[in-house]
Design a protein around this nucleic acid. Structure first.
Lengths: 240, 240
DNA sequence: TGGCGTGAACGAACAACGTTCGTCTCGAAC
DNA sequence: GTTCGAGACGAACGTTGTTCGTTCACGCCA
């Protein structure tokens, strides 16, 4: 590993001593770059040095614009919530509107790899664009005739389901549905594992391998969503 | 910061040179120790050196019994699932039984700080005791008359809701409900933040602060659970 | 136009982490 | 009594988030 010692030039004579100092750093640019890293390599690959490298600078430079990594991730998340489109409440179609809005939210999340993991770790939403989504959901629910308390609880439960589903889905096989073939091979592995289990201990799991591992588009996600919304409709009618 | 250089004794004469070599390491002991660390200091404080120190040894020693940290966490999680008590299915009371079982699961999770985070990151459950719980749930659902596909989807959705709720709750204010007073002060902070929001942009959030931040025991958790179960009952009756 | 203060960029460094390496040592089998 | 292997162990490596002290470019005021 010992290489010939290369002579160290005095700084002024070093190669390209006048490298152009990039003065173009900004908060938005950092957030956008971080999102691009997440999109292409996932959350695990997101670190300060990686983002800085993408911008042709060092990690320390980022801290002039961003308090720490947690704040950066929160900003990225809020940036993604900004892409949501918000419907005008129509009382006659509140159930459909809520479902559409939540499907949109899920699509928006899984479009950015496993970014949903950040949404899961976040507490009660406090970022501007996340609050916009909460406000919209509350509007749809209240238009549907749900009481204040039921609407408040429902927003919580539904948001939780959407985010948790996005996390689960984006973790399947390591990366989200971006390559369906690899998800299939992962599920094939699960199937053969389930089938190899001792039937005397796990009779139902072994006999229900196919329903348990069924993967037909958004069927699984929409099933849970419909169950929740059916339950909410029942609540609404009961409270009336 | 320069202190007087203390003389370094040759190893053989050092203090307590004959420290008893603990040959009592085992997989179960490591798992139990890790769980204790999680219980007392939370998941963030769980690292290999910390567990090893608790056992009076070095981090490297653990790797003879455990492949890596991920496996250790998975073992801890399975160890916690072992505490579940499994009911005998009674078709007449299936809804109540499912609810009781899931409440037990939630209590079991939040009893160990933010261990639920590990359950969230885990994929489809493949550990023995987690599979036992899935098997039990499937048995209760099938006894209730749900179709194979509905039961399979339902187990997924309900498990997801329980784990996600546990994560959310254990993250509130940094630590789970172990100190209700501190959770209250956290919620007070959220309340005053919500109230300080611009009413023209967030009219519903501002006017619904109290319902949104209500924290009455397990009311919030049970609300979502009841909504899901109501929706499932509706599914069951529809499919009949 | 020329000096100057300030915020930002930067390289180096620190501490904590998961993990691996090579060595040593104990206990049991022969 | 010798051998041998599993496991305990200290040291080290590479990666991470973050901080420190310095340097520098730009805009302001004289």
């Amino acid at each position: 590993m010992t290489s010939a010692p290369s002579p160290t030039w005095p700084p002024a004579f070093g190669p390209d001593a006048r490298k152009p100092r990039r003065r173009t750093l900004s908060r938005d640019l950092i957030v956008e770059t971080a999102l691009r890293v997440i999109d292409t390599e996932g959350m695990d690959a997101l670190n300060m040095r990686r983002v800085a490298q993408e911008l042709g600078t060092g990690a320390a430079s980022l801290y002039a614009h961003v308090a720490n990594k947690d704040e950066l991730v929160a900003l990225v998340l809020d940036r993604v919530y900004a892409d949501m489109r918000h419907p005008e409440p129509d009382p006659a179609r509140w159930r459909e509107q809520v479902k559409d809005f939540l499907c949109q939210a899920r699509d928006n999340l899984v479009a950015h790899r496993d970014l949903a993991r950040a949404a899961m770790e976040a507490n009660i939403p406090t970022s501007p664009n996340a609050l916009d989504s909460a406000e919209t959901m509350l509007g749809l629910m209240r238009a549907g005739g749900l009481s204040e308390q039921v609407a408040a609880y429902a927003v919580d439960a539904l948001s939780l389901y959407v985010v948790a589903t996005a996390v689960e889905e984006s973790t399947r096989g390591g990366f989200a549905g971006q390559d369906p073939a690899q998800v299939d091979t992962y599920l094939d592995g699960v199937r053969s594992f389930f089938r190899s289990l001792p039937p005397e201990r796990y009779p139902l799991i072994v006999s229900m391998v196919d329903p348990l591992t069924r993967n037909e588009g958004d069927e699984r996600f929409e099933f849970g969503l419909d169950v929740l919304l059916d339950g909410l409709v029942a609540q609404a009618e009961r409270g009336r």
